[in-house]
Nucleic acid binder design. Structure first.
Lengths: 266, 266
DNA sequence: CGTTGGATTGAGTTATCTCAATAGAAGTGG
DNA sequence: CCACTTCTATTGAGATAACTCAATCCAACG
C-alpha cells in the first residue's frame, strides 16, 4: 500500500531541481525555523501538531513534500466528524489532487513528538513543467492513478473488514512506509495519535487501543512505548490484513460471511 | 457525486470520432446483438447480468462506455466478499484507471431487466491521442482526479455514516445520474439488485431492504415497483446524506460548476 | 401453474460504540 | 526539583446498530 515512496520522491526531487527526475537528494532543513528557503526555490515550513496547511474548499496554489513528521489529509463533516483519508510521511508528495483548482481535502500536521516539516512549492511551476514535458505530465497522471487504486483498496478495508483487520493492515502499511529507526527490527514509531489512527480506520480511539492490546497479548506485536510498535509475527498480521486482490478466480459464491471476525477472541 | 456525466460523455464522443471533443452524439445500438461494430471503430457488446468484462489483474487493453444498463466495478476478496467501488451508468466511460497496464478492479454487467450494452474501444488509440494532444491528456488526468475525489467522498460515507445515511446518499446520487424515465418526477429505476447496492454501501441486503422500507414509511420515498424509486422528500434525504464537507466554506464537489451540482438542484 | 431468484420481514447475536473512570506522559511554573 | 495541569492512552460496563440465520413473500418466467 505504500506507493507514495519511490516514484513521488524521485519526481519531487526532479521538480525541485527544475529538471527531469535527476534523483537529487533533498536538502536537510532545520526543524524549528518557521519558513526558510529550501532546495529548488520552495520554502520550508515547520509546523506544530494540529496546524493546518490548507483546508477543503481553498484554492490550491502549492504542492508539498514531507520532510519530517507526518501530515494527515482529511475530510471534515459539518458535525465535527473526521475521516483521515491518507497520511503523508517523510518523502511523500501531496497537494496535487485538486479538481478545478480547489482543495478537496484538508491537510494538517499530525506528527506527535517534534515538529512536522514540509517543503512548499508553487503549483504554477509544476504545471508549466507538465505542459512543456509530456513525460512529466504522464508521470503526474500515473501518480494520480496510483492514489486512486490506493483509495479503492481503502474502500475495501473500511467496507469489508473488522477492527482487527483494519488495525493489522494499518500496522503493516506503516511498517513499510516508516523509516526503521527505533525499537529494533520490525519496529517503528507511529507519528500520530490514537485519535488520528481511529479517524483513519473509521474506528474509535477505544477500539484502536483495545485492538492493539489484543494483538500484543496474542504476541503479534510489541508496544515498547506509547508510540512505538514492533511487528513480531508478520504472518499473523498479514493473515488478518487480507483485504487483498484475489488468487485465481474465486466464483461469485456470495456468502458475504464475516471473515476474520472469529479471530478476535483470544 | 455524479461526475462521470458531462465531461466524460463529451470526451467519449470526441474520442469516438477520432477528433477532439466535438460533442458528436453517440450512435444508437441494438441491444441484443452480441458484438457489432460501433461508432468510431469500437465494438458494441451486449451482456447479460453477471457477465464480466474484465477482472482484476488482467492486462488492460480496452476502455468502455456504457450505452444501456449498468456495470459494477468491484474488488473481490479471496473469501468471496465483494466491494462495489463504483457503478457505471449509461453515458459513463470506464476502464481507464489502470496502474502499470493491469486492471485494479473487476467489471461486471450489473443491470437487472434487459441486457447491459457497452462500447469497447482500444486503449492504444486513446494513448496515442493523449500523446499527440496535450489537452486531451490533461482531460484524462482531470477525469482521474475527479474519480479520486469521488473515492474520497465514498470513504467518508463508508467510514463515518450509518445505514440510513448511506442509503439516502445513494438514492440521491442515483436520482441525479439516472435518466428520469419511469415513476414520474423524482422517480427512477435502479439498474441493479439489492445485493449490488448492499455490496456498494458495505451493508447487507437485509439492512438495505429495511432501510428502504423505513424511508418509505417515513414518507421520504415511494417504492412503486421492485426496482423503482421515487424521491418524495429530497430535503429529508439530504439531511441524512450529509457526509458533506464543511458548512460555511465553499464546497469542492458541490459548489460552483461541478457537474455533480445537479444533485442538489430542483 | 409451479419454479425460481430476488426482496422483505422477523428474532436473536455481536462487534463496535458510548459513557465513564483510571492511568500514564509530557509539559508548566513555582 | 517537585507539585500541578493537561493531554493522551488504556480499561471497564452497558447500549446499540448492523449482522446472521431463517421464514415468507412476490414477480418473472418457463
Amino acid at each position: 500500500m505504500a506507493m507514495d515512496g519511490e516514484g513521488m520522491r524521485e519526481m519531487a526531487a526532479g521538480a525541485a531541481a527544475g529538471g527531469r527526475f535527476s534523483g537529487m537528494p533533498l536538502m536537510a532543513v532545520r526543524p524549528g525555523s518557521a519558513a526558510a528557503p529550501a532546495a529548488g526555490g520552495g520554502s520550508t515550513l515547520s509546523l506544530t501538531a494540529g496546524e493546518t496547511l490548507y483546508a477543503e474548499g481553498e484554492p490550491a496554489e502549492h504542492w508539498y513534500e514531507v520532510v519530517a513528521g507526518a501530515v494527515r489529509a482529511c475530510k471534515l463533516t459539518p458535525d465535527g466528524r473526521r475521516q483521515v483519508v491518507e497520511f503523508h510521511l517523510p518523502g511523500d508528495v501531496f497537494g496535487l489532487d485538486e479538481v478545478d483548482g480547489v482543495r478537496g481535502l484538508t491537510a494538517e500536521a499530525a506528527a506527535a513528538e517534534g515538529r512536522t516539516v514540509v517543503i512548499r512549492r508553487c503549483r504554477r511551476r509544476l504545471e508549466s513543467m507538465a505542459e512543456a514535458d509530456p513525460r512529466f505530465a504522464r508521470r503526474l497522471h500515473e501518480m494520480a492513478l496510483r492514489r486512486l487504486a490506493r483509495a479503492h483498496a481503502r474502500l475495501v478495508l473500511l467496507g469489508r473488514n473488522g477492527a482487527v483487520e483494519r488495525v493489522a493492515a494499518f500496522l503493516l502499511e506503516m511498517e513499510a512506509r516508516m523509516p526503521r529507526s527505533d525499537a529494533g527490527p520490525g519496529g517503528f514509531c507511529l507519528p500520530m495519535t490514537r485519535e488520528d489512527v481511529a479517524d483513519h480506520l473509521a474506528l474509535t480511539t477505544e477500539t484502536v487501543s483495545r485492538t492493539l492490546q489484543m494483538l500484543r497479548r496474542r504476541g503479534a506485536i510489541a508496544l515498547p512505548g506509547l508510540r512505538l510498535v514492533r511487528i513480531l509475527d508478520r504472518r499473523a498480521l498479514q493473515g488478518l490484513g487480507e483485504a487483498a486482490p484475489m488468487p485465481a478466480a474465486p466464483l461469485p459464491m456470495r456468502g458475504a460471511s464475516a471473515p476474520g471476525r472469529r479471530l478476535l477472541a483470544a
